[in-house]
């Protein structure tokens, strides 16, 4: 199943936040969306996921989602959005409970995704007992449990410290290498974008427009921190973004 964004625009009251966005998201690939803060990239993601209605344009699904997918468009949030009163297993179970699955099948899915995110030993722990990185791994496990056609990731690593971010990136790459998934990955961190994105869409400042889409051919598994080729792409992205970011910053200050 592929996704396509066609001529999407949006305004909040008098403020135009997104203008004429068109993107293609082919199956099995990760599209990163980068841009200066306030450019509407999170809004764009929520519209792709059906949590917000655009003022103009539309998001189209091309082809059917696999029958096994319980929730084709699945979010991973920046602040994890775990229920603090449910255990790790309980948080995963939450998103399965509304589907008429036999109990044994549900338990099997939970065990599987916890194993894939290396959380099996913490199945009964409560969120408050977990570190930030573990919490996000629970959120990822929860997203994987519904076998999504597309993962919509909204700055999933922004709330974490640098080391944890590095570890989690490796985890994500590992997960994708074993079973490639489709994802739209919103971030303001260019290092993340060049590590995880097959293609990177750069948005301008408000109103957000697609400045450029950069392709990176290097396989995800081969990408290492400090790789010169990636550094070059990152520098180019930064060139594209620097003025926009500065202008956006001034705009915010003018407020």
């Amino acid at each position: 199943m592929d996704l396509a964004v066609e001529g999407l625009g949006h305004r909040y009251g008098g403020t135009e936040v997104l203008r004429d966005i068109s993107l293609e998201i082919p199956a099995g690939r990760i599209l990163c969306v980068v841009g200066p803060s306030g450019c509407g990239k999170s809004t764009l993601l929520r519209m792709i996921g059906g949590l917000e209605r655009p003022s103009a344009g539309r998001v189209v699904q091309i082809g059917e989602a696999p029958a096994t997918s319980l929730n084709p468009l699945t979010f991973v949030f920046q602040d994890f959005a775990l229920l603090p009163w449910r255990s790790v297993a309980g948080n995963v179970s939450l998103v399965l409970e509304d589907n008429a699955l036999p109990r044994a099948r549900r338990d099997a899915i939970i065990a599987d995704v916890l194993a894939r995110t290396r959380l099996s030993d913490f199945a009964h722990a409560l969120p408050r007992q977990l570190s930030g990185g573990m919490k996000q791994r629970v959120a990822i496990a929860r997203a994987l449990a519904v076998d999504p056609a597309v993962l919509l990731m909204d700055e999933p690593l922004s709330a974490l410290d640098a080391q944890t971010r590095e570890l989690l990136m490796e985890d994500l790459i590992g997960l994708w290498s074993r079973t490639p998934f489709t994802a739209i990955y919103v971030t303001h961190n260019l290092a993340e974008a060049v590590r995880l994105g097959h293609r990177i869409a750069v948005l301008s400042r408000r109103p957000g427009q697609v400045r450029e889409v950069v392709e990176i051919d290097m396989p995800l598994a081969d990408r290492q921190a400090g790789d010169p080729e990636l550094e070059a792409v990152q520098a180019r992205l930064w060139d594209l973004m620097r003025d926009e970011a500065r202008a956006a910053d001034a705009e915010l200050l003018d407020g």
Partner: peptide, 8 residues
């Protein structure tokens, strides 16, 4: 929102 995004 999380609940809605998972189709609960």
């Amino acid at each position: 929102r999380m609940g809605q995004s998972f189709g609960l």
